[in-house]
């Protein structure tokens, strides 16, 4: 019963943790802008929290560099399954304009698996919200998969 409740609420009210890799702040503040009155994602039940252990969705902005890839991996490992990873902005997708810089590894998917890509430089708040909503469908699938995996094993 409790499991069902958790599953349902994970879709209806996803909790979000935001981590900024080497972002230029452009995507960063757009992500924050989603929380503020004009866009107000809380009306969809989306809640921003600081603790990765409580979160269902990880938003990553910016390029990955050699130092923060460890931090990113760490945050990813701390989150409990099923989890949804969303990469935001051209930087998060591929490295964007900084791709050729010497300290840049590339997109987020070089380090952790990414479920949803939100393009734009910076990505608009509408696009980010859209990305999260798209991702929730995938989260539902992941839940199903986890269940079948559990039965199989």
């Amino acid at each position: 019963m409790l499991k069902k409740l958790i599953e349902k609420s994970q879709i209806k009210s996803p909790w979000i943790v935001h981590y900024d890799c080497g972002s230029c702040n452009g995507c960063d503040i757009e992500t924050l802008a989603c929380l503020t009155p004009l866009y107000d994602v809380e009306r969809f039940g989306v809640l921003n929290i600081g603790n990765p252990k409580h979160a269902d969705v990880l938003l990553v902005t910016g390029t990955v560099n050699h130092r923060n890839k460890k931090v990113l991996k760490n945050i990813y490992d701390q989150m409990s399954d099923p989890k949804l990873i969303i990469a935001i902005g051209a930087c998060g997708l591929s490295g964007g304009i900084f791709k050729e810089a010497y300290n840049v590894v590339g997109g987020v998917d070089k380090v952790i698996p990414v479920d949803v890509y939100v393009p734009g430089c910076p990505a608009k708040p509408e696009a980010i919200i859209d990305g999260v909503v798209e991702g929730l469908a995938k989260l539902g699938e992941l839940q199903q998969q986890n269940k079948t995996d559990a039965i199989a094993s």
Binding site: C21, G62, N65, N68, F98, E100, Y102
Partner: peptide, 14 residues
């Protein structure tokens, strides 16, 4: 170092 990209160096490529 968590955000360092080496952007000044890009002046040689662009």
């Amino acid at each position: 170092g968590y955000v360092h990209r080496g952007l000044e160096k890009l002046a040689e490529k662009k």
